[in-house]
Design a protein around this nucleic acid. Structure first.
Lengths: 285, 285
DNA sequence: TGCGGCGATACCGTGCGGGTATGGAAAGAC
DNA sequence: GTCTTTCCATACCCGCACGGTATCGCCGCA
């Protein structure tokens, strides 16, 4: 069985994405002829036609589309491998946890305390990021992340549910819905909703928002409204009001980490988080 | 960022598994010096020590252990990529479904019929295999598999539940438990249970069993007993008896396929299977 | 102190990955 | 129709990196 090399996959994805040998070569900072030959050789070794060369356009074959998708997973795995290896060799081991600012459901302090009490606990480094936080896990840049389900893509990750939350509509005090005791999603017709960086802008084409302070500021300025998990209630400014949304699907705060992870530090962290979450839901409701 | 090459990962896994450069080189069908240099270069490029060379033994460092695990996933992904690409280019497209003989819960004929009625259905090729059936999915050798949950490792696979089944103890008619109307797991103390190839022989160190006929034969010969999903009831020989096991965790027949799969033929098959399963549980209970 | 095992080093050849120059086919422009 | 442009393939060349052989150096051991 012929072996597939990373270099070939990099070349192929470039061509498959550009559908143009010249541009792909430029992107790869090389010239076009060796690129053409590399792709030909790849096709010969696989015994498969990957591209249809029309004299004026290049198109993917069925098999080429499959290889494009597969290549991405291989390349992602390869760069994650490099990053995780490097991180494992650091002199100051630490657990990198990526969160959305304000998106911890109020559980984080208790979780961190519980974790530090575990034997062999590492210092925890918090990384704040909006949108695409799971990417950091897949890329091997972080050990764990706090996400909200339903979430676009949790495949390849293991998860632990922490907290089920209802959702609140956040509006300025002067907003037409501010006085309501409850609203439903239909009431939001015509409102501008924020667009998270990286999220496929499904319908809501409001401005991109990069952190919670910015978002609340924009809401106060009447530029938009937002539907957020109920735990942000503590962090609202005085000039904003939160109203329960009846028919918004409830959201679950989950702790996620790359599957196959074996680090005992991570395992301890997951244990700690699960314990804290169990207490919270068991006692407090 | 330096790129990690497949060749290097192959070399490294060989050394990491053998913990011996000479043997690793032999396994790779090359000589020892270039292998040593390749590993050194890998370490230099990563900036990480992967191996501790004692003059008489080689050991993995912490980072080396991480890279070994990561390498396996990269290499698996790479060979799966090659196989899936080749399969996608076949002139006679077909859907490869891997099953455990007798493990289809009786649903398979209906599923196949429903699938063939879907638009764009492909011929279905059935592959029978005991143990490690999910490996065939990960390797890109099959499109879908029928498995039973709880299952050792479903990560990296998407699944669709098909049928919840209670478990039955299968024994010869002359067995001491054959007359019971129900048993519990404690009753099985001292009995020999089959060991599936590939499964970590957890406690039960009986003989390895490779197909259902063989298993039933061995049970009839009083060499072992087995706990199996209730749908095998139809396939029992006259000289065997099935007794419900009260406290065995119920098992779920699931259809599994590689995550990120995009083939419309597979999607149609999943739809068909889900429809049949819905009917079965909806009407029949 | 000689021996054997094993990884590292020195040195060498060749094949492959990359470059430049050019060919050749197809799609407009007129 | 033919001239031009565009873009992929081919021809040919070069340097290096990969793999091989020979050997060293270190250490455990008898």
């Amino acid at each position: 069985m012929e072996r597939l090399e990373v270099r070939e996959l990099v070349y192929f994805t470039a061509v498959a994405e550009e559908l143009h040998f010249g541009r792909a070569a430029a992107r790869l900072e090389m010239t076009q002829p060796p690129l053409s030959r590399a792709i030909q050789q790849l096709e010969r070794r696989l015994g498969v036609a990957l591209l249809e060369r029309g004299s004026r356009r290049v198109a993917l074959t069925e098999a080429g589309a499959v290889l494009l998708r597969e290549s991405r997973t291989v390349l992602d795995a390869a760069s994650a491998a490099a990053r995780r290896t490097r991180r494992a060799s650091r002199a100051d081991p630490r657990l990198v946890l990526v969160i959305k600012p304000g998106g911890d459901g109020g559980l984080l302090p208790a979780i961190l305390d519980a974790y530090q009490a575990e034997p062999g606990a590492l210092p925890v480094e918090l990384v704040c990021s909006f949108g695409e936080r799971e990417i950091l896990l897949r890329e091997g840049r972080a050990d764990a992340a706090l996400l909200h389900r339903p979430h676009p893509d949790l495949t390849g990750l293991d998860t632990q549910d922490l907290l089920a939350e209802t959702q609140l509509l956040v509006v300025p005090s002067s907003h037409r819905l501010a006085g309501r005791t409850r609203v439903c999603l239909n009431d939001l017709a015509g409102e501008t909703l924020p667009r998270w960086p990286g999220a496929p802008g499904g319908g809501s084409h409001g401005p991109e928002v990069h952190d919670l302070g910015q978002l609340l500021h924009l809401i106060a300025l009447r530029r938009m409204v937002a539907v957020l998990p109920s735990s942000i209630r503590d962090q609202l400014r005085d000039d904003l009001v939160a109203v329960p949304v009846d028919d918004a699907e409830p959201t679950t705060l989950v702790l996620a980490w790359p599957e196959h992870a074996t680090s005992p530090a991570l395992a301890a962290f997951v244990r700690a988080a699960a314990a804290v979450a169990g207490e919270a839901t068991g006692h407090g409701g």
